[in-house]
């Protein structure tokens, strides 16, 4: 019996057609088909030989149900997958906040850039004018800024040093 015929016969068997009916349409192959259907029947019948142990069905059901109840209160990602890892949960939550954060930073950068003066020609000339208006007083040396006051530098001491130096110079000239 060729494979195509057997596939056809098997399809009819699976559709619950009676074996006798099928066998009639494949003369000369009755024995072969009968034995093949027999093997199929053996397999179908043996399925009930394997079964969960007593108590296992309910125990696993309890575990699964408990998980299911917990699962619905758990954090899920966009595709609905339950998240167990705390890091993933945080990331999942921050995923919503992240675009907002980036947007906020961009707005702040934009505003701060707008506040910075651009050195255009007009502004440069204004700056020049302003610098010309600076008074001498503004440029006067402010001893305080150098901390002279704090150092208590003694001018008389300086004069003494200078006079001493001039004396040395004079004596050197004489020599």
């Amino acid at each position: 019996m060729n494979e195509q015929d057997f596939i056809k016969a098997l399809a009819r068997y699976e559709a619950h057609e009676t074996p006798e009916n099928i066998l009639r349409d494949f003369p000369g192959h009755e024995d072969e088909l009968r034995s093949l259907f027999g093997v199929a029947k053996l397999l179908t019948s043996s399925r009930d030989m394997i079964s969960l142990r007593e108590g296992s069905f309910d125990r696993i059901k309890r575990n699964v149900t408990q998980k299911a109840q917990l699962g619905y209160t758990g954090e899920r990602d966009r595709s609905g997958r339950l998240l167990r890892n705390p890091l993933l949960i945080i990331m999942n939550k921050t995923k919503v906040l992240l675009p907002l954060g980036v947007l906020a930073v961009l707005v702040i950068v934009f505003i701060s850039m707008k506040g910075t003066p651009n050195t255009t020609e007009d502004e440069s000339s204004k700056l020049m004018q302003n610098s010309a208006m600076v008074s001498d007083d503004d440029l006067a040396f402010d001893a305080n800024l150098l901390g002279a006051e704090e150092s208590n530098f003694d001018l008389t001491e300086l004069e003494a040093i200078l006079s001493e130096e001039s004396e040395v110079n004079a004596s050197l000239t004489t020599l």
């Binding site: 019948s45 043996s46 399925r47 009930d48 030989m49 394997i50 079964s51 142990r53």
Partner: peptide, 8 residues
């Protein structure tokens, strides 16, 4: 096979 149920 662990025979726990009889086959039909």
């Amino acid at each position: 096979v662990q025979p726990q149920l009889a086959g039909v």
